[in-house]
Design a protein around this nucleic acid. Structure first.
Lengths: 112, 112
DNA sequence: CTTGACCCCTAGGGATTCTAGGGGTAGCGT
DNA sequence: ACGCTACCCCTAGAATCCCTAGGGGTCAAG
């Protein structure tokens, strides 16, 4: 799945992933891939700027760590980030059900 | 609801609306507003360029009409447009269920 | 020593939507 | 007659977001 279609919803995904425990950028990519069986496989050039943006916005904080001689920047949620995650989840639900209502289509798929 | 969040899904909405019968731009806006109880209320500056884009892409055709001394450009689906509508509906469903899977959240809301 | 996995980053471009204007007609109330 | 609202079309420019395409670098296996 192209992330083009994610426009506007990437933040929600990132906040959600980090909500389950601090993660560094590369790990976020892997976790998204894992949770979606590869359906969401974002390039680094998408993830890193997005994480920076969220940190600038005060929703994430980062810390540098050294692991196995490799430096990592680990991100975790701020309290603002936790609030934003809840809020964006609400927005997503409203958005998705509204679009679903317009396009009609069968009731929400049972995720076969 | 801001249409920012629509990015990448506006085409699906427009094709869906026009799929139910030819409509002019202004009527598309009203129909979207009607079907969503005002949740989706797009500015003209969003709709008109989008319709032009879809026509350029060969998914819509337009015809000028004169009604009550007012000129209207009426859009209808081409066969390519019908196909694209089905395809985009599939993509939307895949996208929405994937995001839903990531953000977890309760099962698909019963639209209380 | 080359390749691949792991890990970080930025610049520039493309695509999409919004803001903020520009037209114009018809009909209503005053 | 005038103003206001609804109806109806349009574009230019700004803003935003994600991608492409590079740039680093470490470590382990072949």
């Amino acid at each position: 799945m192209r992330a083009d279609v994610l426009k506007g919803h990437l933040d929600l995904l990132l906040l959600t992933i980090v909500e389950d425990g601090a993660k560094h950028g590369y790990a976020v990519i892997e976790e998204l891939r894992r949770r979606t069986d590869g359906a969401i496989d974002l390039p680094e050039g998408t993830i890193y700027p997005a994480l920076h943006r969220l940190e600038c916005a005060g929703l994430l904080t980062s810390e540098w760590h050294e692991v196995n001689g490799r430096r990592r920047r680990s991100y975790s949620l701020t309290s603002g980030g936790r609030h934003a995650a809840r809020e964006k989840r609400r927005e997503w639900t409203a958005f998705a059900s509204t679009v679903q209502r317009v396009v009609g289509a069968p009731a929400w798929p049972t995720m076969a």
